[in-house]
Design a protein around this nucleic acid. Structure first.
Length: 901
RNA sequence: GGGCGAAUAGCUCAGCCGGUUCAGAGCGCCUGCCUUACACGCAGGAAGUCGGGGGUUCGAAUCCCUCUUCGCCCACCA
C-alpha cells in the first residue's frame, strides 16, 4: 500500500482485496465476551435460488450502514445472514429444470429423488447471493450464516409446532383455502395477492320447480356446476315466498333448495346468490349454516372432475366458463352480462388465478398470538419507520385470520404429524422426533405428506438462528435484537409473525424498530422486475462504478418512506454522483496525503488540541467548526434513520467546504512559502479523518483505503472499528463560521463581477473594500488568490468606472474596470439587485409594522426579523449610492448611505 | 368499498413541529477555464406563480377543506 495513488479512483482494484482483508481480520464476527452492548440486525434471508437484484442492493446497503454506524459507536455488532429454503419458489425452479431437461414432472421423479434433486440444486447455486452481498460490502457475520432447513432450525420448527399444537393453537380442518392450480398447493391468505381486474357479471336464470325463474348473478359461471342451493336475504320481499321451494339447476339437472341467509346483500346483483360451498368462502359458511352438501367440481389443476356432466370433464375451468355461458344462452337462460371490475386473487409465486377450494389443511389459530403483538406496538415496544406503517400492522392484527400452514409440496419442513391407520386406533400423533410406531397401539404409522409454509420457519429466525430451543450463549447475548430492515411487502408474511413468535416463545419482541424502506422502481415508477426487463444488475454497477458509488446513490437517493427511482437505461447518469464523489474523495486524499510528508505535529485524534489555538488561522477555525457541525448533523441523521440527510451533510462538507474552500485556502501554507504549514497539515488531516469516519458506513471501501494510508496508522487498524467522532464544544466556533462566510462572500462577489465582464482568467484586478473588515484582513491572501486580486485597498471607492457589489453586512465593494465597464449593463445589474432588496424590504416593513406580528410572534423571531430588515436596508442603500455614482440612480436612497471607515 | 401516501426547477428528489434559505441539492443545460489533488474537475449562470381551487392566520411550499393525477395497503358484495 505504499505506491502513490493514481489520479483516478479505480474501485475494482481495491474493493475485492479489502473485503478479504476485513474477513481475515474477523472484523464482522460478533463476540459475546467483548463487554460491549450488542447491536443486532437479522438479515431478511434471501431465497436460496435468488440472485442479487437492486432490491437486495437497497435493503442490504441500508442494513450495512446501520450496522457499521453502530459498530463504530462501540456496539458489538451482529448482522446475521442466512438463506431461506423458499418452499414454492425453489420447488418451482427445480420443477422447471427437470421439465426442460428430462421432460418429467416431479411425480415422475418421485418424492425422495425429487427432494434430493432440489438439495443438489441448492448446494450448487445455494449461497451465491451471499457471495454477491460481499461485493457490495455487506459486513455480515458469516461465521453464523444459517439456512432455514438446517438441522438446528428444523428442530426449532418442530418444537414450535408441538408447542402450539399442545396449546391448542394448531388444528387441522376442512375449510375453503386458496389453492394454486399450477403449484398444486394450498396458500395462505397473504400468499394470494388480490388485484382488481375487469370481468363480467353474468345473470343466470335458474328455473323454479314451481314455474318461472330465479335469476342469480355470478362472476364465475363455471362454479354453478357445484351449486347446492340458492340463497336470498330473509327480509327480501321479492324472494320471501320462494324460500323453502326449489330450483332445477340447469346443465347439472339437480334440484336444489332456496334458502334464506343473513349474509346476502339484497342490493347487489339480483339479491339471489348461487351457493357453491366447495368453492367459495361465503358459500361455505352458508352451506354450513344450512346443512348443504359441498360438491367439489375441480381436479387439483382446476379442470372439471367426475362430479360434473361428462361433456365438461377434464376441461379447463376457463373453457368451461365459456361453455356454461354459451349453453345458458342457448337455453334462453342467460338474462344479461354486465361488465364488472372485481378483485381476482393470484398466486404470489406464479401469478396463476387462485381457486378457492375446500380441503383439509393445518392451521394456526392466530388471534391469541396477535393480541400481545398488538399490545407490543401500542405500548411502544415496537415502532415503525415511517410511523404510518404501524397502521397497516394494526389493521392486519385486528382482522387477523387463521394461518393455513400446510403446503402440498415436497420441498420444506415435513409436518411432524403421524397417523395410525390401525383399526380401532386411528390416533394422530404430533412429535418432536420422527415416530416409528403409534404411541397408542404400537402399530405402523405414516407421516403427514405435507410440508409447512416457508414462513413457518422464517418467523422463528430471530431466535432459531441463535440456537433456540437450546439456551445457547448466543441466544442469551443477542436476543432480542435491535432493528429489522425490510420492504413493506413482507410486513405481514414475516415481520408481524416474527413479533408474534418472539413474544410467544421468547417472551419479548425480536426487535424494537422496524424500518420499512421503499421499492426500487424505474423512471416510469414501475417496480423493477425480471419479467419487465427493467432491472439493474447491482454487480454490473459495482463492476463499472464501484460498490461505494452504488451505495452512495442508493442511500442519498432515498428519503424515509419514499421509493428509489433509477433509470435502468442510463446507469451513467444514475450512478455518476456516487462515482464522482468517490473520485473527489480520492483526490482530496491524494492532495492531503502528498502534503503530509515532513509533518511534525501529531495527527491522531481530532480535537483542536492538536494545534495550539492561537496558531489557528480563521480558515482553520472555520473548517474545524464546519467539521464539528457535520459530526452533529450526520450523527443525528444516522440515529434517526435519515441516511440521505447524513449522506448529504457529509458530501457537502467534503466537497464544498473541505475541497473547494479549505484545501484551496491552505495551499500556500503547504507549499512552504508561508508559515503555518504544520498547522494546516494537522487541521486538514484531522478534519479529513473525521469526515472519512462519518462517511464510512455509506462508502466503506474508499474510506477504509484512504484512512489506512493516513500516517501513523498501525497496519492492523481498520476504520470500521475506529471510534465514531463526537462533537466538541470547543470546536463549535460560531464566530469563525460567520467571519469566514464573509470572506467567501468577498471572493464570490469578485468572481461574479469578473465573470460578468468576461475578464480574462489570467488577469488580476484591484479590489476596494469600503470597510476594513477584520476577517477579511486576516484572510487577505486567500481572497487575493481565490479571486485573482492583485491588490486590496480600503475606503470609499474612487469616482471611476467599475463593478460594484455589497456584502450581506452592508460593506460596499468596488473593482475598477476602466474601459471594460459597460455602464448600462452595470446599472441594470445593480438596479435589479436594488429592486429585489426593495421588494424584500417592503414586505419586511409591513410585517414589522403589523401590531399583531410584533405582539404575537416570539421575541426572538421579531428580533431576527428586525436584524434582517436592517441588513437589507443597509445593502439597498449602499447599492443605491453606487447607482448614483454611476449616474443612473433614481435618488431614492433612504439614508445618506455609508462611507468607508 | 374502506384506509393511507405522493404531487416542489427538464429529470431524480430535500425542505421535520407555519416566521431564522428573500424556495435548495445532484444530474442535465448555457458561458469561461486542461489554475502542478481531481475535466469523474474549477469558476460563473439560466431555470420553479412549490398540481388546481378555496379557507385558517399578522404571515403558508409548510395547517384545514375540496378537486385532479399517480401510487400503496386492506376487503368473502356473489
Amino acid at each position: 500500500m505504499t505506491e502513490p495513488l493514481t489520479p483516478q479512483y479505480h474501485p475494482a482494484q481495491i474493493e475485492r482485496d479489502l473485503y478479504r482483508w476485513w474477513m481475515a481480520r474477523g472484523l464482522f464476527t460478533a463476540r459475546r465476551d467483548s463487554g460491549a452492548r450488542p447491536y443486532v440486525i437479522m438479515m431478511p434471508p434471501p431465497n436460496v435460488t435468488a440472485n442479487l437484484h437492486m432490491g437486495h442492493g437497497l435493503n442490504n446497503t441500508i442494513q450495512d450502514v446501520l450496522v457499521r454506524f453502530e459498530r463504530m459507536r462501540g456496539r458489538e455488532a451482529l448482522w446475521l445472514p442466512g438463506t431461506d429454503h423458499a418452499g414454492i419458489a425453489t420447488q418451482n425452479v427445480v420443477e422447471r429444470e427437470i421439465a426442460k431437461q428430462d421432460g418429467k414432472t416431479r411425480f415422475d421423479v418421485g418424492r425422495e429423488a425429487f427432494v434430493a434433486r432440489v438439495w443438489e440444486h441448492v448446494n450448487e447455486t445455494g449461497a451465491t447471493i451471499l457471495d454477491q452481498l460481499k461485493a457490495i460490502g455487506a459486513s455480515c457475520d458469516w461465521s453464523r450464516t444459517y439456512f432455514t432447513l438446517d438441522p438446528d432450525l428444523s428442530r426449532a420448527v418442530r418444537e414450535v409446532f408441538v408447542r402450539l399444537y399442545d396449546k391448542g393453537l394448531i388444528y387441522r380442518g376442512n375449510y375453503i383455502i386458496n389453492w394454486c392450480p399450477r403449484c398444486l398447493t394450498a396458500l395462505s391468505n397473504e400468499e394470494a395477492e388480490k388485484e382488481d381486474q375487469d370481468g363480467h357479471l353474468w345473470h343466470l336464470r335458474y328455473p323454479l320447480e314451481a314455474g318461472g325463474f330465479l335469476t342469480v348473478a355470478t362472476t364465475r359461471p363455471e362454479t354453478m356446476l357445484g351449486d347446492t342451493a340458492v340463497a336470498v336475504h330473509p327480509d327480501d320481499e321479492r324472494y320471501r315466498r320462494l324460500v323453502g321451494t326449489r330450483v332445477l339447476l340447469p346443465l347439472a339437472d339437480r334440484s336444489i333448495p332456496i334458502v334464506a341467509d343473513e349474509g346476502i346483500d339484497p342490493a347487489f346483483g339480483t339479491g339471489a346468490v348461487k351457493v357453491t360451498p366447495a368453492h367459495d368462502p361465503l358459500d361455505f359458511e352458508i352451506g354450513r349454516r344450512h346443512g348443504l352438501p359441498a360438491i367439489d367440481i375441480f381436479t387439483p389443476d382446476a379442470r372439471l372432475n367426475e362430479n360434473v356432466p361428462e361433456r365438461f370433464r377434464g376441461l379447463d375451468r376457463f373453457d368451461v366458463r365459456r361453455m356454461v355461458v354459451r349453453e345458458f344462452e342457448a337455453l334462453g337462460l342467460l338474462e344479461k352480462v354486465e361488465p364488472h371490475r372485481h378483485a381476482v386473487a393470484r398466486c404470489y409465486r406464479c401469478e396463476t388465478v387462485v381457486e378457492p377450494r375446500l380441503s383439509e389443511q393445518w392451521f394456526v389459530k392466530m388471534a391469541p398470538l396477535a393480541r400481545p403483538a398488538l399490545e407490543a406496538y401500542r405500548d411502544g415496544r415496537v415502532r415503525f419507520i415511517p410511523e404510518r406503517r404501524g397502521d397497516d400492522y394494526v389493521q392486519w392484527m385486528e382482522n387477523i385470520r387463521d394461518w393455513c400452514i400446510s403446503r402440498q409440496l415436497w420441498w420444506g419442513h415435513r409436518i411432524p404429524v403421524w397417523y395410525c391407520d390401525a383399526p380401532g386406533c386411528g390416533r394422530t400423533s404430533v412429535a418432536r422426533t420422527d415416530l416409528e410406531a403409534c404411541p397408542g397401539c404400537g402399530g405402523p404409522v405414516r407421516q403427514d405428506e405435507d410440508v409447512l409454509d416457508t414462513w413457518f420457519s422464517s418467523w422463528l429466525v430471530p431466535f432459531s438462528s441463535l440456537g433456540w430451543p437450546d439456551e445457547t450463549e448466543d441466544l442469551r447475548a443477542f436476543y432480542p435484537g435491535d432493528a429489522l430492515v425490510t420492504a413493506p411487502e413482507i410486513l405481514f408474511f414475516w415481520v408481524a409473525r416474527m413479533i408474534m413468535a418472539g413474544l410467544e416463545f421468547m417472551g419479548d419482541v425480536p426487535f424494537h424498530t422496524v424500518y420499512l424502506h421503499g421499492t426500487v422502481r424505474d423512471t416510469r415508477h414501475r417496480k423493477m422486475s425480471k419479467s419487465l426487463g427493467n432491472g439493474i444488475d447491482p454487480l454490473e454497477v459495482v463492476e463499472r462504478f464501484g460498490a461505494d458509488a452504488l451505495r452512495y446513490t442508493v442511500v442519498s437517493g432515498m428519503a424515509v418512506g419514499t421509493d428509489l427511482i433509477l433509470d435502468p437505461k442510463d446507469l451513467d447518469t444514475s450512478f455518476a454522483t456516487g462515482r464522482n464523489f468517490a473520485n473527489k474523495l480520492w483526490n482530496a486524499a491524494r492532495f492531503i496525503l502528498n502534503n503530509l510528508e515532513g509533518q511534525t505535529r501529531p495527527l491522531a485524534g481530532r480535537s483542536p488540541d492538536v494545534v495550539r489555538t492561537e496558531e489557528l488561522a480563521l480558515a482553520d477555525r472555520w473548517i474545524i467548526a464546519r467539521c464539528d457541525a457535520t459530526v452533529r448533523t450526520a450523527t443525528e441523521a444516522y440515529e434517526r434513520y435519515r441516511l440521505n440527510e447524513a449522506a448529504g451533510a457529509i458530501y457537502h462538507f467534503l466537497w464544498s467546504d473541505l475541497a473547494d474552500w479549505y484545501i484551496e485556502q491552505v495551499k500556500p501554507r503547504l507549499y512552504g512559502d508561508q508559515p503555518g504549514g504544520d498547522v494546516a497539515r494537522a487541521v486538514a488531516a484531522q478534519t479529513f479523518d473525521v469526515a472519512l469516519r462519518l462517511l464510512h458506513p455509506i462508502m466503506p471501501f474508499i474510506t477504509e483505503t484512504l484512512w489506512k494510508r493516513m500516517p501513523g496508522r498501525p497496519p492492523e487498524a481498520s476504520i470500521s472499528t475506529a471510534p465514531w467522532p463526537s462533537p466538541d464544544v470547543r470546536a463549535a466556533d460560531g464566530a469563525a463560521l460567520r467571519d469566514f462566510a464573509l470572506v467567501q462572500e468577498v471572493v464570490g462577489a469578485v468572481r461574479q463581477i469578473r465573470a460578468e465582464y468576461g475578464i480574462q482568467p489570467g488577469a488580476s484586478v484591484r479590489l476596494r473594500l469600503e470597510r476594513r473588515l477584520p476577517s477579511v484582513i486576516s484572510e487577505l491572501g486567500t481572497i487575493q488568490r481565490l479571486a485573482k486580486v492583485a491588490e486590496i485597498s480600503f475606503g470609499t471607492p474612487p469616482a471611476e468606472p467599475g463593478g460594484h457589489a455589497v456584502l450581506s453586512d452592508g460593506t460596499g465593494l468596488f473593482i475598477p474596470l476602466g474601459d471594460a465597464i459597460d455602464i448600462e449593463r452595470e446599472c441594470t445589474r445593480i438596479g435589479g439587485e436594488v429592486n429585489r432588496l426593495r421588494r424584500l424590504i417592503d414586505g419586511q416593513q409591513r410585517k414589522l409594522n403589523n401590531e399583531d406580528f410584533v405582539s404575537r410572534a416570539p421575541v426572538a423571531v421579531v428580533e431576527a426579523e428586525r436584524t434582517k430588515l436592517a441588513s437589507w436596508l443597509e445593502q439597498a442603500d449602499a447599492l443605491a449610492a453606487k447607482l448614483d455614482l454611476l449616474g443612473c440612480g433614481d435618488g431614492s436612497r433612504r439614508t445618506g448611505g455609508r462611507n468607508g471607515d
